[in-house]
Computed example of a mutant assay.
Amino acid sequence: MNKLITMTLALLLGAFMQAQNQRFIYEYKYIIDSTAKDKIETEIMMLDVAPKGSKFYSKDYFESDSTMRAIIEKQSKTGDLNFTGIKFKGKIRYSIEKMYPEYAVNFFTTLSAEEYLVQESRKQDWKILSEKEKIGEFNTQKAVCDFAGRKWTAWFTTDLPIQDGPYKFHGLPGLIVKLEDSTHSHIFEIKGSKKLPNGYEWTSTKEKHRYNPLITLNETKYKKAFKDYRNDPMKSERQMLAQGTIIEMRDDSGKLIDPVKARKEQEERMKAKIKNENNMLELDILK
């Protein structure tokens, strides 16, 4: 009997170690505008899991951000900053880190030119059900919870006994393979995995070099900042101009654009975009 227990623990430890130092690739399908349910967006998201913690982020945006940083670093040496023709890929601009073993959650996001760190205090109160399902190569079990204004269903696998998953979700006795809300407008599903690069070292996103100070807020204060941004998306830019910052805008050919006209057009685009973003993942932030 003791030998059997020892073998079982060894198998579990082996599965756990396989889950560590892994990059899990999720397909995220979502509908951001509730009035256009036929318009489904898709983004490839990464969940990097290491012994110290995990990071969840958009593949395309991470690659674009890395490219932009390399260009800025190179051009800053000459003093000639020119971003003409450079465009970011990826629509998901946030990233999330979870620190093990306490699973403290930090949410990093931007509103206009300002970058925020929101310290998450809410927990998911999971109810594990008996229903099981095979999803891809994984044997999974069903769990449900209410979180951020939505009802969620998760399918987790104890084959990988790590209590993590996409976005801020965690706390089940296995990795979340699939996650969707009751309206089927936000769906995450694992599509693959691979080992993290040799020498990968988990460090907090707080340590990343940035050009503007990181603004740290709790959920209540961030909710207010978020509402202020939706009401006036150009506020931070006006503040930068008032402080003497010179902002030049150019078209794809490199020709200077009239700044007043450019800012007016930008504000109109941002307000139209914000108006259509009425079905975001965390619905309760709009209330």
Rank of each mutant, 00 (worst) to 15 (best):
K255P: 03
P213W: 06
L281K: 10
D232W: 05
S121F: 07
N2I: 09
K74P: 09
A70W: 12
R263H: 14
E267F: 03
D284Y: 15
C145M: 05
L9H: 13
F83P: 02
N218F: 04
H184Y: 07
V177H: 00
A70T: 15
K227Q: 15
R122W: 06
Y28I: 05
N106G: 04
H209V: 11
P101E: 03
G14L: 12
A36I: 07
F147Q: 04
M46E: 08
K52Y: 01
H186C: 05
F138V: 00
F108L: 09
K59A: 07
K52D: 05
N231R: 12
L179Y: 09
W126I: 03
E41D: 15
E133Q: 14
I128M: 13
E133A: 07
I135Y: 00
T110M: 13
K123W: 01
Y28K: 07
L281I: 14
A70H: 14
G174A: 09
D228L: 12
S236P: 00
P173V: 05
K206N: 12
Y222V: 02
S130Q: 12
K255M: 13
K191D: 03
L281G: 03
L256A: 14
M249T: 10
Q239W: 10
E201K: 15
A154Q: 07
S66Q: 15
F138W: 11
F24Y: 12
E97H: 04
I92R: 00
L179N: 11
Y100I: 03
A15F: 06
Y222L: 04
L256G: 06
T158H: 04
I187C: 01
E133P: 04
T110Q: 14
S253I: 08
G53S: 01
K223M: 05
D80M: 07
F156C: 01
K151D: 14
I44W: 03
Y200P: 07
E248W: 00
M68A: 13
L47M: 03
S76G: 08
T153P: 02
D164E: 11
L196K: 11
M270C: 02
K168N: 07
Y103R: 11
G192T: 08
V177P: 00
M1Y: 15
F24L: 06
D125T: 13
Q119P: 02
A143K: 00
G149L: 06
E268P: 00
K123R: 10
K39T: 13
T205C: 05
F56N: 01
S204C: 09
A113H: 15
K224V: 09
F169H: 10
G90Q: 02
K74H: 13
K132W: 02
E137Q: 10
Q141C: 06
D38L: 13
I135P: 00
T220K: 15
K142R: 14
Q266C: 06
M249H: 09
K91M: 01
G14K: 10
L241Q: 02
S66R: 15
P161N: 04
M249S: 10
